[in-house]
Computed example of a mutant assay.
Amino acid sequence: MVQPSSWVESGVKLSKVRDLHLFKFTDELQARLDDLAERKKAKDLTKAEAAELAGILELDRIFTLLNARVILEWKL
């Protein structure tokens, strides 16, 4: 797996949603995720691309949890 932290500097942004700042992928990283996911469905990924996809998906899971935590704390 490609380390999720490798995209933190260039593939992540904070987006203001209402009064919250949430973690989001940049348009470029989101497009790469979409492309890799589509190619996985078509069974057209190299091992390196599969490792890249795994890393991006792990980062997505991390940000989903962090964003949920931010929203929960904001509602309290």
Rank of each mutant, 00 (worst) to 15 (best):
K13G: 04
S6R: 08
L29F: 05
V70R: 07
W7T: 04
I62D: 07
G55L: 08
A50D: 04
R69Q: 15
L53R: 00
A68P: 14
A42S: 08
T46L: 03
A48E: 09
L57S: 14
V17G: 06
W74S: 14
W74F: 14
D27H: 09
W7N: 00
K40P: 01
L36N: 02
L66C: 15
L72W: 08
W74L: 07
V17M: 05
L20N: 00
S6I: 13
L76E: 09
L33P: 04
E73R: 10
T46M: 04
L36C: 00
L72E: 10
A54P: 10
A50R: 11
D19Y: 08
K75A: 14
D35F: 08
A51P: 09
A31E: 05
K47Q: 12
K75N: 10
Q3R: 08
L66W: 11
L14K: 07
Q30P: 01
S5P: 03
L20T: 00
L33I: 00
W7E: 03
K16N: 05
A68Y: 13
V17Q: 03
S5Y: 06
K24Q: 13
L22S: 02
K40D: 10
A37T: 06
W74Y: 15
S5Q: 03
S15W: 13
K40F: 13
D44A: 06
T26G: 04
E38L: 13
H21M: 13
W74R: 11
L72C: 05
L29M: 04
L72Y: 11
D34L: 09
L36P: 00
F25G: 01
